[in-house]
Amino acid sequence: MAKKVIMTEADIKRTIARISHEIVERNKSTNNIILVGMRTRGVPLAKRLASNIESFEEMKIPVGILDFSLYRDDISSQDIPLVIKSTNIPSSVDGKVIVLVDDVLYTGRSARAALDAIIDLGRPLSIQLAVLVDRGHRELPIRADYVGKNIPSSKDEEIEVRLTETDEIDEVAIIPKPGREG
């Protein structure tokens, strides 16, 4: 099976615009929201959401960066340690609405790690989760509050999200898992 493009640049743009509106609608007031991008591709997505909200609400939304690698549940079963980067949240999370932003929601294990990482930083009012793609196959009782697109997929496939900030192009595609034929 070859690569199949599921979302184009225009699709991604529309989807992010919709999620931005949903975030504002659901939270009524935007003045205590922090958008927190989960490394790597959650970060540019969080920035795009923030600039959208800024343009129609005329309100600057802080964007933070979260590296949750230190909270992963598979850290000692990794053959080798993962590269860790800095977490940088612009203000205290106490009493804030934290919207975690990631590209793909799959097993839910990254989201679990991110929840623990945020809670170690303080006591937010609430934590919400926004993802560009939900591909199913959850292994934990976790769901997203904002979903760009539901893409039912097989475990033998991979969802590849590419963004201009990291990969020169905006595109979501389904590809067969590397190393497997068919």
């Binding site: 053959d79 080798i80 900030e165």
Partner: peptide
């Protein structure tokens, strides 16, 4: 954070340090 925390997302894919 100090100057070494320049965020370069192009070089930011979680990769094994192997």
């Amino acid at each position: 954070l100090g100057q070494i925390n320049v965020i370069d997302l192009k070089d930011d894919n979680p990769q094994p340090a192997q």
